[in-house]
């Protein structure tokens, strides 16, 4: 069971302190994971990553374009000493291609960390549950640290954690849809049921409030790409997402007040000056 950090650290000594996010052999200060797709340029990608404060960036594995005159590579814009690079299997619709892509990415980067996606169809890009389970099992067997993109089905998340996933990453809503976390109750149940690894909301966020809301639920991280890359001003949105992650996480750790139906005065009700009375008392007299 997750608990707010007031049990882990003394807020009186440092209320800005937070435990790091641990993914396999990597320790991250920032809990925002940011994708590198869809930016206008590599320069913009690099600037947005920097402003987002992220420590972990996702990349895709694709055929080398042999026709194009060679331009610079994305890798020249990502400082590997600064960021953990998380290769994905985006675009894979079956177990075999997802495993092959993972094997290629491990050889390319020398990292055993991989973000597994086994998708069902091109319209929804929703994860195929059976393929996702099978590929997770195979990749764990091959020694990968597998961060699994999956649906927000709590039992699915339990099964993935049992298979040894390094992180379970339910979608808030479909990839790139900007709909935010559509089923916060499912995320809450997932957080209750899965102890073994971090829960990271992957996909669907559009606004800072979506990121904030996800962290307020207690998730350990949020992974996003389009929300920054396709914003009208990606650099400003990167800043917004950085701040939202911080605000949401801090809110969770701080422990928000419970919601109540009626008001609860912040100012003392005693010691009012003579002549004032409550409306109900005035009406009764």
């Amino acid at each position: 069971m997750r608990s707010a950090a007031h049990s882990e650290t003394d807020p009186m000594t440092d209320p800005t302190h937070d435990a790091p996010l641990i993914l396999g052999e990597h320790t991250l200060s920032s809990r925002l994971l940011v994708g590198t797709g869809k930016y206008a340029s590599f320069e913009e990608t690099a600037a947005a990553l920097e402003l987002s404060g992220t420590d972990c960036v996702t990349v895709a594995v694709r055929r080398v374009n042999l026709d194009e005159s060679k331009g610079p590579s994305l890798l020249e814009y990502i400082d590997r000493d600064r960021y953990v690079i998380l290769p994905n299997t985006a675009g894979c619709f079956d177990v075999e291609s997802a495993v092959r892509t993972s094997v290629l990415s491990r050889d390319l980067l020398g990292t055993k960390l991989v973000k597994l996606e086994v998708l069902g169809d091109k319209t929804t890009l929703l994860p195929d549950p059976v393929g996702t389970l099978e590929a997770t099992e195979e990749l764990v067997k091959q020694g990968f640290d597998v961060m699994v993109y999956c649906s927000d089905d709590p039992r699915m998340c339990v099964r993935l954690a049992e298979l040894g996933a390094t992180a379970v990453m339910p979608a808030g809503s479909p990839i790139g849809s900007g709909q935010g976390v559509l089923n916060p109750n499912a995320i809450r149940i997932i957080l209750e049921l899965v102890d073994a690894c971090p829960i990271i909301v992957d996909a669907g966020v559009g606004k800072a409030s979506d990121v904030c809301a996800a962290f307020e639920l207690g998730v350990e991280g949020v992974l996003l790409n389009s929300a920054i890359a396709l914003a009208q001003d990606p650099l400003r949105m990167a800043v917004a997402m950085r701040d939202a992650a911080c605000a949401g996480r801090q809110t969770f750790l701080a422990g928000p007040i419970p919601k109540r139906l009626y008001a609860n005065a912040s100012s003392p009700t005693e010691g009012m000056i003579a002549g004032t009375s409550l409306p109900s008392e005035a009406g009764a007299s």
Binding site: G35, A60, R62, R63, L74, A90, I175
Partner: peptide, 10 residues
């Protein structure tokens, strides 16, 4: 033969 590299992605 497949020759792959890393590109931008999420």
């Amino acid at each position: 033969v497949e020759l792959v590299t890393l590109v931008g992605g999420g």
